[in-house]
Simulated assay, not measured.
Amino acid sequence: MKRIIIASIAAAALVGGGTAVAVAGTQSSSPATQSSTPAAASTGASLTQAADAALKAVPGTLDSIDRDHGRWEADVLGKDGKWHEVTLDANGKVIGQHVDRDTDPEDAAEAKALRNATVSATEAARKASGSTVTSVEFDGDHTPVWEVETVKNHKERDLNVDAHSGKVTQAPADDDHGDDDSDDD
């Protein structure tokens, strides 16, 4: 009995103190698909919920989803073959959508690689389990991968999830850290 009470008090302290808020308060059982900020996690939509809402608004294949300034922003390759940008509020309600008319020849190659992927964006997020996913984006340039940005214990981490096998690897470090563009004219 004492263990149950102590565990309950410890859980309440964690939730009240904000440490466990990213895991608590959402309907997803995996922290991998939680929203990116503690305040949003307790009242907002998870990545999976936002992705589902974006795909309901624009049926197709999710290319990327990102939480930015309290909103979810999703790019969807629609079943109509067009690229769509969908904006959702923190709760996953669609607040805007439009067709992206600024396309280039690389978009056709991206669309083909995305259609051939056997791992979806939400599956890639789940593969990064144990962390809070803040962004998932498809990269079909060379070897098709999902670039997954995560936060765990207040530390950001970038992972790659192979779009065919689902294998998770640490993303290579960016080579532009500390580049202040001072050499640009």
Results as ranks from 00 to 15, higher is better:
I5L: 15
I6W: 12
I6P: 01
A10T: 07
A10C: 15
G18M: 03
G25F: 02
S28A: 12
S28Q: 13
T33A: 09
S35A: 15
S36Q: 05
T37R: 08
T37V: 12
A41M: 03
G44V: 05
D52A: 10
A54S: 02
L55W: 02
L55K: 00
P59H: 01
T61H: 05
I65M: 01
D66H: 07
D66V: 09
D68Q: 12
G70Y: 04
G70L: 06
E73P: 08
A74F: 03
W83E: 09
E85V: 03
T87Y: 05
L88Y: 01
A90Q: 13
N91I: 00
D104N: 12
A111W: 02
V119L: 06
V119E: 05
S120A: 03
A124Q: 08
A125N: 00
A128T: 02
G130R: 11
G130D: 14
S131F: 05
V133M: 07
S135F: 10
D139T: 02
D141C: 00
P144E: 08
W146D: 02
E147K: 12
E147F: 13
V148W: 08
T150C: 12
T150G: 08
V151L: 14
N153C: 09
N153Q: 12
K155P: 08
R157Y: 05
L159V: 04
L159C: 06
N160V: 04
V161S: 10
P172Y: 06
D175L: 13
D175Y: 11
H177D: 15
D181E: 13
S182N: 06
D185I: 07
